[in-house]
Amino acid sequence: MQRVNMIMAESPGLITICLLGYLLSAECTVFLDHENANKILNRPKRYNSGKLEEFVQGNLERECMEEKCSFEEAREVFENTERTTEFWKQYVDGDQCESNPCLNGGSCKDDINSYECWCPFGFEGKNCELDVTCNIKNGRCEQFCKNSADNKVVCSCTEGYRLAENQKSCEPAVPFPCGRVSVSQTSKLTRAETVFPDVDYVNSTEAETILDNITQSTQSFNDFTRVVGGEDAKPGQFPWQVVLNGKVDAFCGGSIVNEKWIVTAAHCVETGVKITVVAGEHNIEETEHTEQKRNVIRIIPHHNYNAAINKYNHDIALLELDEPLVLNSYVTPICIADKEYTNIFLKFGSGYVSGWGRVFHKGRSALVLQYLRVPLVDRATCLRSTKFTIYNNMFCAGFHEGGRDSCQGDSGGPHVTEVEGTSFLTGIISWGEECAMKGKYGIYTKVSRYVNWIKEKTKLT
């Protein structure tokens, strides 16, 4: 034993070699072989497995989906700052455009905790909710729209109204504003409101030439003092309507412009014939205590009207009353817009006519005020429907199939267009061939041609 100890002390290297040989010859039971080890760690190889990531292109799944990435790591994937920024906006807080917040056709661009709407022409605001041009839906104005110097929408209202708090709607500024039905039992019968379409306001006024200088022999019209197929109006439903009495009662109609003036057809009036105007009328054979009678003290036909040349060209006249009318729910003026808007309103496509005229061709006159909704007829169809001249200051309205029309005794009465609950004068009943005849239409004086003249002559002093 002493000898062994001496050998170990003198030859430590020998001992180490012996131990190493023993270990190498022993069977290893701690580690699995290569094949079995792979069965336990069965993990798919990654895209760049075996390579240094710093030297390969980034992978979106590896960089940002398996674990949260930084902007720089995302930049490695896209290799483009702009594309990385677009991805980053949604990656950080989701897609803010998912709810489609942009209105009126706006395009949404996502941002971090926010979004941006790219608005089409005519709109602005956070969600493109603000109209900035009158060309689109009248700028959301209830009545009139004008573009300011910086191309912003400025709404306005006709006389007797003021802008509401929203700067879009119009509200009454006087007790009985024009064009409004205020009798409670008839307010439910107000005709369907007309909503502004998209309009090209630059070209809204037709490029028409008034044929002022045409000389033409007097034409022989049949029954051209021209509501057939209409309905009984309720008291106060058309408070701007008046009836004219002269040699015979209810020979023509008219509309209240203001307390002192009536507008009617020029062919209705004769110099030297006494005319009485009755406002607030409903049943011409009954006294309903809503009527107001006034005498006409002055007749002003349009300066281009000449019955000797043509009885229905420039067929418009103004009547001055001896005493002002007292405005109330049964006696209310009709609204008159400017030339541009009167023309736009007419193009809405349908209007209402009213009167006490004959209820059928050569038949009896109506006792109760009649009204009828009539569609506008395109000019080409209008011209083809008659052998008589249709001037540019006239328009056609009615039904091709016949059966409904204005008729004798309705002449001078109103053709009105309702705009968001307020009625505007767009025409004056003038003439036609018979009444409600198939293929024939009622012919009306186009008020847009005469609004400046009306307003100039009827100013209240």
Rank of each mutant, 00 (worst) to 15 (best):
Y391A: 10
F224C: 05
Y371E: 06
L24N: 03
S11L: 13
N222H: 05
E98H: 09
T422K: 07
G21L: 14
Y91N: 15
E73C: 03
P101H: 03
V416Q: 06
D198M: 12
Q241N: 09
A279Q: 00
N343F: 03
L19E: 02
P239N: 02
E98M: 07
E433C: 08
N38L: 09
V242D: 00
T445S: 05
N36M: 09
V296C: 03
E86Q: 15
A37C: 04
L372A: 14
N310H: 14
N104Y: 02
K188T: 06
R358A: 11
N328W: 02
Q96P: 06
L19G: 02
N100S: 11
F221L: 12
I429D: 08
K234I: 10
G357H: 11
A149Y: 09
F221D: 13
G179T: 01
C18Y: 04
P172N: 05
Y91T: 04
T458R: 02
N36H: 10
A173D: 11
K440T: 14
K137I: 04
N113L: 06
S406E: 15
N203F: 07
K293Q: 09
G427L: 01
A397K: 02
I390M: 06
R43H: 09
T225Q: 13
V273H: 12
P375D: 13
F87R: 15
S204Q: 05
E66S: 08
D131T: 15
Y441D: 00
M6P: 06
G442S: 10
N258K: 02
G402T: 08
N295C: 04
Y330K: 06
I454E: 00
L41V: 15
G272A: 08
D338S: 10
P120Q: 09
R191L: 13
L318Q: 00
Q216G: 06
A164T: 10
S411F: 11
N113Y: 05
K339W: 07
F224D: 11
R3L: 13
C170A: 01
Y91P: 08
K311S: 06
Q408V: 06
T445Q: 05
E73Y: 07
V4N: 11
L318R: 00
P375E: 05
T389G: 13
T290C: 05
I262W: 01
P235M: 09
P172T: 06
N258T: 05
P414H: 12
Q2S: 07
G280N: 02
A173T: 11
M65N: 15
R226S: 07
V30S: 15
D249P: 08
R379D: 08
V353S: 06
N283D: 11
V353M: 04
S329D: 14
F424K: 00
N213M: 10
Q96Y: 06
E434I: 09
L19A: 05
K109E: 07
R358G: 11
V56D: 04
V248K: 13
T225G: 13
L163A: 03
D232L: 09
A397R: 01
T276M: 07
E79K: 09
E67D: 07
K168M: 12
L20W: 09
E193S: 12
G398E: 06
T81E: 08
L318F: 00
L19Q: 02
L460F: 13
S448L: 02
T209N: 13
G403Y: 13
T16H: 09
